[in-house]
């Protein structure tokens, strides 16, 4: 047998593994189909929902949107939007600040093997709590107000920001640190002149992206912890309050679109 023929026989045969995976996927599909009460015939209900939404746009209560007429400004949807943006902003700021020391600790470059294990474990612990659960927990301490939302957003953001900060630190160019060692810089001077200038843009970019996400979560977090659109969102689910739903949509949708555009533009500038 020639070498080519021998090697030919060694070409990996994947069909067994592929078959097992295919069967597993099929079983999971059937199980989830049965479990989640999906009914093909009811899919058309989507059209009903859309009709409800589009119809709502014909019933916009502009007084409620802007907080005019019988509604005080602080009851208007625009005011709630401003409150939502404020909550998202402070939550992101809190998360960003807390994430810096944790990010440095979790990176192997600064924290070493031990620091990186400890830091990563803390970050994982933070990440496993969904924001809404955090908000429910924090409710007991902070009470029903927007500070609960800010804290929930802030703490949850640390999990993602810290991890991405650590990745940015570990992915940066290490050679300048060698040069700083050679000029006699100490640890803090190496961070200041070797690390910070390299990661500042990444940090800002990641934090802006998180702000973008946090505006979305701040919009719904109020349902459990008050603040922002919270109370009005639960109110809007009743069929007779279609105009409230309309007032919310006419503000939330452009707010998120604009936020998305601004953060995207700024992040583009940073790289």
């Amino acid at each position: 047998m020639t070498n080519v023929q021998q090697t030919y026989l060694k070409i990996p045969k994947r069909w067994k593994i592929n078959l097992i995976f295919s069967i597993a996927m099929l079983v999971a599909l059937i199980y989830s189909f049965a479990g989640s009460e999906i009914n093909i015939l009811r899919l058309s209900s989507v059209f009903y929902s859309f009709k409800y939404m589009i119809l709502a746009y014909t019933k916009i209560n502009w007084d409620l949107v802007l907080g005019m007429g019988i509604y005080p400004f602080s009851d208007g949807v625009v005011y709630m939007a401003l409150e939502t943006l404020a909550m998202a902003f402070f939550g992101t700021l809190l998360g960003g600040i807390l994430a810096i020391p944790l990010g440095f600790l979790s990176s192997e470059t600064v924290g070493g093997k031990t620091g990186s294990r400890i830091g990563s474990a803390v970050l994982v612990l933070i990440r496993v709590f969904p924001e809404i659960i955090l908000a429910v927990v924090l409710l007991k301490g902070f009470g029903i107000n927007s500070m609960t939302c800010v804290m929930a957003i802030g703490i949850h953001s640390v999990g993602m920001l810290g991890k991405l900060f650590a990745e940015a630190i570990d992915n940066m160019d290490k050679l300048p640190l060698e040069a700083l060692d050679a000029v006699g810089a100490n640890r803090w001077q190496k961070i200041r002149f070797g690390i910070l200038p390299q990661i500042a843009a990444d940090f800002s970019s990641v934090t802006l992206y998180r702000l973008d996400i946090n505006v979305r979560s701040a919009s719904v977090l109020g349902i459990v912890a008050a603040g922002g659109f919270g109370a009005m969102l639960s109110y809007a689910s009743a069929p007779e309050n279609q105009s409230v739903l309309a007032a919310l949509m006419v503000v939330i949708v452009p707010m998120i679109l604009i936020m998305d555009a601004i953060s995207g533009y700024l992040r583009g500038k940073l790289i």
Partner: peptide, 25 residues
């Protein structure tokens, strides 16, 4: 002073800041 094959500058920092970093110690 030390000079390296791959220059070892902070590429995202200004030339001036790279040069003044020689004084940190």
């Amino acid at each position: 002073g030390m000079i390296f094959q791959s220059f070892n500058l902070v590429r995202r920092m200004s030339v001036f800041n790279n040069v003044i970093s020689g004084r940190v110690a």
